Amino acid sequence: MEAHATSQDMQALHIASIGAGSFGRHHARHLSQHPLVGQVTIVDRDGARAAELAGDLGTAWTSDLASITPDAAVIAVPTEAHRAIAEPLIAKGASVFIEKPIAGTDTDAAALVAAAERAGVILQVGHIERFNPAFAALASQARGVTHIAARRHNPPRPVPPVVDVVLDLMIHDIDLALTLAGAMPRTVTAQAPDGGTESAIATLHFANGVTADLSASRLSPVTERVLTVHDADGVWRADLAAGRLARTAGGAIAADEAVAPRDNLFTELDEFVRAVLGGPRPTVTGKAGAAALAVAERIRAAIATSSFQLSA
């Protein structure tokens, strides 16, 4: 069942990497190579899959989460299982990193946030675009934001995600919009030709006067991840996929530069590890993850009640 790791595991921090699927494998790889992590245990209900990944990385593994007591856990499993896995870990005093969205419902998200506060542990949510260098550069320089436009379009995937396009793609830009606006939206409107399964558009209006137009699709012939932000002095355009940031002021291009790349996944996991060890508070807290989910749920509800019609 469980393979016990070797001498490197004598260090203090023991992290469970839960979920050995396509994305969970990347989490596990980074954790197994992190200099501040002493032991990693791969956890997956498919024991053969967990054992294979653990063998590749030289870590421990188990298919029985209850058999281990990690200091922290990174959860990359289907969204509907987030609360059921995270809540018992938190109750035992483990800090938790949960892939976005934080949970399947607002109720589950609120329960996880409350549980982490009671236990006094770290709860971080994997909104990875916060760690995109192009966004970080824009967010640090934009002043007096008035309008945000986000376009996140992907080609169809061979195996479509279980969640709809709002929870899969748009939620990234919901989180970025909330960060730039510095508030929750007062009103939300949204439409989608297919009920929001593969494409959706939404508009957020904030009490401070900021507006945000969001567009997400899983039907595009090309990949687009572009964020355009109007502020008091001009317009920023961040190409989050290409890693470029352009600035227009007075109708002329003031700057258009490549932003130095980094491994965004490692950066957010490194922040989590350091927070667990007593470092600074994570950038994306459980409350931030719950806020993004709450807006996503409002968008989904607006789509469900809209009368969007495709033009002839």
Rank of each mutant, 00 (worst) to 15 (best):
I148A: 02
I148Q: 05
I148N: 01
A149M: 14
A150G: 03
R152P: 04
R152D: 08
H153Y: 13
H153G: 09
N154C: 15
P155E: 09
P156Q: 06
P156K: 05
R157D: 10
R157Q: 14
P158M: 07
P158I: 11
P160Q: 01
P160C: 01
P161Y: 00
V163G: 10
V163A: 13
V163D: 15
D164N: 00
V165S: 01
V165G: 00
V166H: 00
D168V: 06
D168A: 07
D168I: 07
D168L: 09
L169S: 09
L169K: 11
L169G: 07
M170S: 03
M170N: 04
M170Y: 09
M170A: 02
I171W: 01
H172R: 01
H172P: 00
D173C: 02
I174Q: 01
D175F: 12
D175Y: 12
D175A: 14
L176K: 04
L176F: 05
L176Q: 06
A177S: 10
T179V: 13
T179C: 15
M184A: 13
M184F: 14
P185N: 06
R186C: 15
T187G: 10
T187Q: 15
V188N: 03
V188R: 08
V188I: 07
V188M: 08
A190H: 08
A190T: 05
A190Y: 05
A190S: 04
Q191E: 15
Q191G: 12
A192E: 04
A192S: 10
A192L: 09
A192F: 10
P193G: 04
P193Y: 10
G195Q: 02
G196N: 00
T197W: 12
T197F: 14
T197E: 15
S199P: 09
S199N: 12
A200N: 03
A202N: 00
A202M: 01
T203W: 14
T203F: 15
T203Q: 15
H205P: 10
H205M: 11
N208M: 08
G209Q: 11
G209H: 11
V210K: 08
T211R: 04
T211K: 07
A212V: 02
A212D: 01
D213M: 11
L214M: 06
L214K: 03
L214T: 03
L214S: 02
S215M: 14
S215P: 10
S215A: 14
R218F: 06
L219S: 11
L219V: 12
L219G: 09
S220G: 05
S220Q: 04
V222C: 12
V222P: 06
V222R: 12
E224I: 14
V226A: 11
V229Y: 02
D231A: 06
A232W: 11
A232N: 14
A232H: 11
D233M: 11
D233A: 14
G234L: 08
V235M: 13
W236T: 07
R237V: 12
R237I: 13
A238D: 03
D239M: 05
D239I: 04
L240R: 07
L240E: 04
L240A: 01
L240K: 07
A241N: 12
G243K: 05
G243N: 01
R244I: 06
R244V: 06
L245I: 03
A246D: 07
A246L: 05
R247L: 05
R247Y: 08
R247H: 10
R247Q: 04
T248S: 11
A249F: 12
A249N: 14
G250R: 01
G250F: 06
G251Q: 02
G251E: 03
G251M: 03
A252R: 11
A252P: 10
